[in-house]
Structure formats: C-alpha cells, structure tokens
C-alpha cells in the first residue's frame, strides 16, 4: 500500500503556488503592454534584469539592505523612465506614421533591445554573478520552509498585483487603459492621447518586470542573461492565460507553477520546463485563445 506523506505533498504544492505567483508578476507587464499596444515586448526579461541590477546597486551602495523596499520602488521608477524613453524613441514613431506592419516592426525592435541590453550588462557589470543580501530571515509559508527573500517576493507580488488591479479599476488612468485595450479608436474619439497612453503603459509594464527582478535578485542571482527566465515563463503564461488578460495571467502563473513543481517530483526532474510547455500545447489544442480570452471591441 502506498503511503502519502501529506506534509511533503503540501510542501510541493505550496512551493508551486509560490513560484507560480512570482511567475505571474514576471508575466503581468507583458500582457499589459500587449493589451494596450498589441505588441509583444520580447525584451521584458532584460528589463527584469535591469531592475535586479538597479536594486543591487541601490541597496549595496546607497540605501543598505534594510531599505530594500525603497530599492524596489526606485528600481521600478528607474525602469519606468527607461521604458518611457525607449518607447518614445524607438516604438512610438512606428505608430504615428502610416507604417505598414507596425506591430511586427515594433516586436523586432524589442528583440533587438533585448540583445542590446544584455550586451550592455556584460560590458557594464562584467560577466560575474551578483547577489544582494537577503531581505528577511528564513521563515515558513504553512508547512514550507522558505528563504526570507522568497517570502518577501511572494508577499510583494500579492501587494503589487493588488495595487495594479486597483489602479486599473479605480483610477481614471486605469479606466483609460481599459478603454485602450478594448477599442483604441474609440478612446481617441473621446479625446484621449492614445500615443501618450502607449508610452505610459510601456513604462508601467516594464516597471512590473523590474519589480520582479528587484524582488528576486537575491533569490535567483544576477547576471546578464538572468532575464531569460522571466521572458520564457512570461510568454508561456500569457499564451496559457490568454493574451491581454490579467486574471488569465494570475491563473496561468499558478497553474504553471503547480504543474512544474509536481511534474518535477512525481515524473522526471530533468523535464521540469517541458511539463509547462506540454500544458501550453494542451491549452492551445483545446482553447487556442487561452483560458481567459480578452475580446477587443471593434467599431
């Protein structure tokens, strides 16, 4: 008779939920930018990486580890501004003129940006692995012992996603973003500068990635290619959840975390990433628009 170690099983599940929620934060910015601008930002992982490096510099050279939360905020602000500049200089011009295949070109620009940022990081920070000190002492989430940093990242993700949800639902800007996601032409006729909105949306999206990078810097270590995790998981999640859907991101992140965690221990640990992609393929076969399809209103 097979005996089940319930404590161990609960640890696997909690571990999956924790990492899944953190994945959601990595993916939220991608889906938000797509929802507004209809472009996929392939350099999201690099903004995650920049957020991590900024956090490292801020807390190791200026504020100290006890002010890690200020570091997270400043990293987000820094990357938000960088995102605004990048969008204004490289992506916005394609949307203002009568450029054909603008979203395709914009997507290629984001791929190039990713390569550029990675190489800048290699030159600027060198090839070494960095890690800021942990944010908090080791603790437990129910039965699972976790590092203080992972606990902070878990709570931080819940707080950030809640604030982001409130921002979208309760503020004028949030409603404007929802309007842009539903019908760009419609909100233009209402007098809203949709190009300005695009720029801010891009900034907010990359700032969310930076928040993930800053929160997880002590946990997953920093190097010029560390953002590839965020990119890979982010795109899996938005396809599973449905492009542009915020509830879809949350749900898909949690599901992905659970499937990877349980697959790694009950099937074969070598193929942890494969389970996520198999799940993605299954979703595409059953519901090609993802779990939570966001519909655009066409005038």
């Amino acid at each position: 008779m097979v005996t089940i170690d319930w404590t161990l099983l609960s640890q696997y599940i909690i571990s999956g939920v924790v990492i899944g929620l953190i994945y959601s934060l990595m993916a939220m910015g991608i889906t938000f930018i797509y929802g507004i601008m209809r472009i996929i930002n392939w350099s999201m992982g690099e903004f995650y990486m920049i957020g991590g490096y900024l956090q490292y510099i801020i807390i190791t050279h200026f504020l100290g580890v006890e002010n890690w939360y200020l570091g997270v905020l400043l990293s987000m602000v820094g990357v938000f501004l960088l995102g605004m500049v990048v969008q204004g200089l490289l992506i916005k011009p394609m949307f203002q003129g009568s450029v054909e295949r603008r979203t395709e070109y914009a997507t290629i620009v984001t791929i190039s940006l990713g390569v550029l940022f990675t190489n800048v990081a290699v030159i600027g920070a060198g090839p070494f692995i960095y890690s800021p000190p942990g944010y908090y002492h080791g603790t437990r989430i129910l039965t699972l012992p976790v590092s203080g940093t992972r606990f902070v990242a878990f709570i931080g993700t819940i707080v950030l996603l809640s604030l982001f949800y409130l921002f979208l639902k309760k503020t004028w800007w949030g409603r404007a973003f929802q309007g842009a996601a539903q019908n760009r032409m419609g909100i233009q006729t209402a007098g809203i500068d949709v190009f300005r909105l695009d720029q801010i949306a891009f900034g907010i999206g990359v700032a969310l990635a930076a928040a993930a990078g800053a929160l997880l810097a002590p946990e997953f270590y920093l190097h010029p290619r560390c953002g590839s995790i965020a990119t890979m998981k982010g795109f899996e999640i938005i396809v599973i959840g449905g492009l542009g859907s915020i509830p879809g991101v949350l749900c898909a992140g949690l599901l992905l975390g659970l499937i990877e965690s349980l697959g790694a221990v009950f099937l074969n640990p070598s193929f942890r990433d494969v389970y996520g992609f198999l799940f993605l393929l299954a979703i595409l076969a059953i519901k090609p628009t993802g779990l939570f399809e966001e519909r655009e209103r066409v005038a």
């Binding site: 990492i19 990877e260 790694a264």
Partner: peptide, 20 residues
C-alpha cells in the same frame, strides 16, 4: 540522483524530495 535543466531557476521541489 536528479538530473535538472540548468536553465531552471527553482529547484526547491527536487531538493524537498531529496531531503525527504
């Protein structure tokens, strides 16, 4: 033994299994 993909960031479940 557990062979893991070196690109995977979170190895907690595998380590929990080994600990058990």
């Amino acid at each position: 033994g557990m062979v893991f993909d070196r690109k995977v960031a979170d190895l907690t479940p595998q380590l929990l299994k080994l600990k058990a």
